[in-house]
Simulated scan of single mutants.
Amino acid sequence: MADWNTRLEVKLGDATITPISTFTPTFNVPHTVIHSIEADNVGYVRQPFTFTFTMGVPAVASAVADLTELATNGREFSIAVAEKKGTDWAFKSIKFARCVVTSASPSNVVIDGVPQASFNCLALSVGLEA
């Protein structure tokens, strides 16, 4: 049985804006192969990486409006792992910092369940935990 005691959240400073329902990351680390007159494939040049992601958030309260405001103002946010301790969700670590929204797609109204809004984003800083 899975232990569901962690979740991803959108953080602005120390404030949690919303939990994240779905998270689909995509990263690209391009390399260009170097050839010489004497031989093929003698090395490579690493290009800058890009890290983009799509996140789905519950379209409840002011979460979508807050994220839309971040997008239109070009403000940065972070994605954090929150760990449930008792009945509270405590901040544990940040993995994706300096994130910005590049586009948004609000959801349709649903009869059952919570509507979801989808945001396409990019992260300028990706931290690794040892």
Rank of each mutant, 00 (worst) to 15 (best):
N28P: 14
N28A: 15
N28T: 12
V29K: 13
P30M: 00
P30Y: 02
H31G: 11
T32H: 06
T32P: 02
V33Y: 00
V33P: 08
I34H: 03
H35I: 04
I37G: 03
I37W: 08
I37C: 06
I37F: 04
E38A: 07
E38L: 12
A39N: 14
A39G: 13
A39S: 06
D40G: 15
D40V: 03
D40C: 09
V42R: 05
V42I: 14
V45W: 05
V45M: 10
R46P: 08
R46I: 14
R46V: 09
Q47E: 08
Q47C: 05
T50N: 09
F51R: 12
F51M: 11
F51Q: 14
T52H: 01
T52Y: 00
T52M: 08
F53A: 15
F53G: 12
F53P: 11
T54Y: 04
M55Q: 03
V57H: 00
P58Q: 01
P58L: 08
A59K: 03
A59G: 05
A59D: 06
V60S: 05
A61N: 07
A61H: 04
A61S: 10
A63Y: 01
V64L: 02
A65L: 12
A65T: 08
D66L: 01
L67R: 00
T68A: 07
T68K: 02
T68L: 04
E69A: 05
E69I: 06
E69C: 00
E69N: 11
L70Y: 14
L70H: 09
A71N: 04
A71F: 02
T72H: 09
T72R: 06
T72D: 04
T72C: 05
T72W: 06
T72V: 09
N73M: 13
N73I: 04
G74V: 01
G74F: 06
G74Y: 02
G74R: 00
R75I: 00
E76W: 06
E76Y: 05
S78N: 12
S78R: 10
I79L: 15
I79E: 14
I79Y: 02
V81E: 14
V81M: 14
V81C: 06
E83V: 15
K84I: 01
K84Q: 15
K84C: 05
K84W: 12
G86Q: 10
G86T: 05
G86S: 03
T87C: 04
D88Y: 11
A90G: 07
A90V: 12
A90E: 01
A90W: 09
A90I: 09
F91T: 14
F91S: 15
F91Q: 15
S93H: 10
S93Q: 15
I94P: 08
K95P: 10
K95G: 11
F96P: 11
F96R: 08
A97G: 10
V100E: 11
V100Q: 12
V100C: 07
V100S: 09
T102A: 13
T102K: 07
S103T: 09
S103F: 04
A104V: 15
A104I: 03
S105C: 12
